[in-house]
Structure formats: structure tokens, C-alpha cells
């Protein structure tokens, strides 16, 4: 038997030197984000739960941030990378404002985001990014990115733990996939739904995701960026408020642009 027994570990001098504990610099903090563009507004939303595995770290951590008067960013994946990516982007936007006396357009922020993500190609930010806001023409815009910077402008996008639950629903309700207009009716055009419909879809998406995905829940933060001059009655009108929903207008960050950003918060189930 001894002939076939493995030699003791200490007999192999290379073993001890080779051995190291592998440090994994990444984690996954759950949650989900979502953005939908309208004709003259964009809604960008994220839940507020932060988790690791089966543990809820906190019931309130932000995933969505206002960048400029017409652009909001949401990140999902590894929270530390997401937070630090947003920090760096905010710094670049401040430098831009000092150099050019104006805020960066969402189109330019999108390209900047790609450059910054791809700059970390070989040690990526583990962050799925969605930008939402108003473009230079005054229309709602959504840009979505993968962690190394591939990006695309879309009418809507879901990302994160509940992406697979929410995106098919959005395909159906925003892109009207597998639906045909009634005979004689107007053809469907994505990105033209009224704000009240979009708000309803976002809230339904997150309550549905909360029901079936354990990494989603606790609270919902929903940013609405509106084109300048647009009426706000469909958001702040009292009959539009659902139970426990709070609406607050965020003040202007820069000068000139009169786009308005609102923060809508409401609770989600905590189980």
C-alpha cells in the first residue's frame, strides 16, 4: 500500500511556496435598476436594498444619483465599484463644467461613461450602468452599458438581479412586442407613453420583482427628469399619488437649463 500512498506534503518543497489565499476583489450586492424614456421625460428607478448572499446589509442604499440637471445615473452589481464609478464621473463632470461653463449633455456623458468603463478593461468595474435624462433635442433618453463599456441608446432597459423578470414585461409594455394594433388604429411607437402609464409600469415592475426575487425589495427610488417647460401636474397632482408615495423636487445643479428633476420614493416589501 505504501507504494501507492501520496508522498507527504512537506516532502514537496514547491507546495508551501505556491500556496496563497486567493483574494477575490469583487462581490455582488443584488438589487435592480430600470429606466424608461418618454417623449419629454425619462424615469430612472432602483430599489434600495443592498445585500450579499442571503444577508441584507442595509435596507437603504442608493443606486441612483442625479448627475446634472438633465442626466441621472443608476448602477448595479458590485456596490463599491458602482459608488466609486459615480464618484469619478461626478468629478469629471465638475471639471467639464469649470472648463466649458456648461453642463455636459447626456450624449457626451454616455460616451464618457464608455471611455471610463473601457479604461478599466483588464480590471473592470463590476457595474452595470444605466443613464437616463433629456437629450439636446428635449426628448427622453436612456443609455445602457455593460461593465466594460459597450453601450446603446434605448427606449427602456432593466438591469440587475431582476433583469430577467422585468425586461420581458418591458418588451411587452414599452416596445409592444407580440402586440398588434387594432384594425384601423394608430401604429405603436415605443417611447411615447404618458408619464402616468410609465410610473405605473415602473412601480408594477418593482413590486413584481420584489415578489419573486429575494435580492430586490425594501424601498424604491424613482427619478423623473422632465423637459423644460413641461407640465408637472401629472406627477405632483395630488390624485396621482399612490399610498405612501413621496414626491420631492431636486433643485437645479447648474445654470441655464430649466429641466426639472423629481425624486419619487415609496416603500417595497421587506421580506
Amino acid at each position: 500500500m505504501a507504494l501507492f500512498a501520496p508522498p507527504p506534503m512537506y516532502a514537496d518543497p514547491t507546495m508551501a511556496a505556491d500556496k496563497q489565499h486567493a483574494f477575490n476583489p469583487y462581490s455582488e450586492n443584488g438589487g435592480s435598476i430600470l429606466a424608461i424614456a418618454g417623449a419629454d421625460f425619462t424615469v430612472i428607478a432602483g430599489d434600495t436594498r443592498q445585500s450579499e448572499g442571503y444577508s441584507i446589509q442595509t435596507r437603504y442604499a442608493r443606486k441612483v444619483w442625479q448627475l446634472t440637471d438633465r442626466c441621472v445615473i443608476a448602477t448595479n452589481g458590485f456596490a463599491a465599484d458602482g459608488n466609486n464609478f459615480v464618484k469619478r464621473i461626478k468629478q469629471r463632470l465638475e471639471w467639464y463644467e469649470h472648463a466649458h461653463q456648461k453642463q455636459m449633455s447626456i450624449k457626451a456623458i454616455a460616451r464618457l461613461t464608455q471611455t471610463m468603463l473601457y479604461g478599466n478593461r483588464f480590471f473592470p468595474y463590476f457595474a452595470y450602468v444605466i443613464l437616463g435624462g433629456i437629450d439636446e433635442d428635449g426628448t427622453g433618453a436612456v443609455y445602457s452599458f455593460d461593465p466594460i463599456g459597450s453601450y446603446e441608446r434605448e427606449a427602456c432597459r432593466a438591469a440587475g438581479a431582476a433583469q430577467s423578470l422585468i425586461q420581458p414585461f418591458l418588451d411587452n409594455q414599452i416596445y409592444f412586442r407580440n402586440q398588434t394594433p387594432a384594425p384601423g388604429a394608430e401604429p405603436f411607437v415605443p417611447g411615447r407613453l404618458p408619464l402616468s402609464t410609465v410610473l405605473g409600469l415602473v412601480i408594477d415592475s418593482f413590486t413584481s420583482a420584489t415578489e419573486r426575487e429575494i435580492a430586490v425589495g425594501d424601498g424604491l427610488e424613482l427619478y423623473v427628469v422632465m423637459k423644460k417647460g413641461r407640465t408637472t401636474d401629472d406627477l405632483v397632482g395630488s390624485d396621482n399619488l399612490i399610498k405612501n408615495m413621496q414626491v420631492q423636487e431636486l433643485g437645479a445643479l447648474g445654470e441655464g437649463g430649466s429641466e426639472r428633476t423629481f425624486l419619487v420614493s415609496l416603500p417595497l416589501k421587506r421580506d
Binding site: 462581490s27 443592498q50 442595509t58 435596507r59 463599491a80 459608488n83
Partner: peptide, 8 residues
Amino acid sequence: LLGTTYSA
């Protein structure tokens, strides 16, 4: 150690 931050 990962730089993960949160408050509660």
C-alpha cells in the same frame, strides 16, 4: 476589505 460601504 472590499471597499463595500453601507449605513443602517
